[in-house]
Amino acid sequence: MKHLIASLKIFLLLAILTGIVYPLFVTGIGQLVFNSQANGSIIKENGLVRGSSLIGQEFRQSKYFWSRPSATSPAPYNACASSGSNLGPTNPKLKESIEALRTKFQIDSSIKPSSELLTASGSGLDPHISPAGAHCQVERVAQNRGLAKELVEKIVLSHTQTRQLGILGEPVVNVLTLNLELDRIRADK
């Protein structure tokens, strides 16, 4: 009994320390120093929240660059229910879905789509595609928007993030910010 009372007391103290003081302390500094990041890197346009630069969105129209497939339910890119497809490497369904997507991409363009465009991400919210994945969609988007291919290429390049510190990670293109900029160009015209 003596042990249990001691346990209870020290547990409550540690719970206050690690479960209340510590997260509040971190929240305080985080909100103060890195306000935008701590609140979700939100993108606003004319006061309207259009999403987050870290969370991907689904694009189906030909005028947009398409994101990777997403396995979240009930709809793709549901930011309240992150999920991967969990399809195993020898599952026939994986092969079927890849082949179906490949066909969809090749109808619009003769260039082969890159691997990540045909496979679902782990989170189902991946905001990026690879530069190759963007490149193979340039022709379709340019045609649809009546823009010069070179101009679209240039915009893609400006939304390409290189490896961090020169070596970390992979070069990526942020699909949401890229599409937002394309929409802005049309609005300017």
């Binding site: 971190v26 909100q31 990041q37 701590a38 890197s41 999403g51 689904e58 949401l176 937002l180």
Partner: peptide, 20 residues
Amino acid sequence: LISQGTIQNFSPYIEYKPLE
């Protein structure tokens, strides 16, 4: 982590209007 974009707040879930 926060400096890189990991969130740290107590807000309710944020509603947004997707492009499509």
